[in-house]
Amino acid sequence: MLVIVPIKRSRRAGNSDEELSPAMHTDDCVAAPHPDWNRLIAAIAVRQDRDAFRKLFEYFAPRVKTYFQRSGASEAHAEELAQETMLTVWRKASLFDPNSSGASAWIFAIGRNLRIDAFRRERRGGAIQVSEIEAEFKVDEAPLPDMSLASAQSETRVRVALEQLPADQVRVVELSFFEEKAHAEIAGILGIPLGTVKSRLRLAINRLRIALGEPT
């Protein structure tokens, strides 16, 4: 069963030392286990299970909203986009393939596409369809030779690898990939030289690649 446990925020830069005490790292067993997201999405696909949808909404909508806000959307717009994301989860549940991606990765991709769509609409008017953006990411339908990469197991490995990254590297990954900050901006936010931003990013990604068992 796939269980996604939030990355411990205690690893964050700027947190005090006591939060990094070993006791904080055993909270996996304390945290309430999440339901199996993959099965919830399957339940929506198979029998339009509203109860499953509610569970997904309660966990993901507030986090998706945070994602949009961090990407620069206003509170109201982020709320609206989070609604759209969840509506898409409902409508496209039958397209979800648990063998190809984990539930959270799938929801992330939906949110990402809606974010790009919103960004383009802002600049070009209403003529854009999110299906255009979906097509941009569907670069090839051919199956990958090693599907284990996308398995639930690899999702666990990614999570573990992220947990093991030093806090300063995690922060740079988040800022760079998920909050759309240019490297120079990140340098400003964190008060570190540009070169350090780049090297932290490289280190973090190398660690993730190794965790994934990927040839570099």
Partner: peptide
């Protein structure tokens, strides 16, 4: 994208 999902969920 899996990393993106993990970050999102956290």
């Amino acid at each position: 994208e899996g990393v993106g999902g993990t970050v999102l969920a956290s």
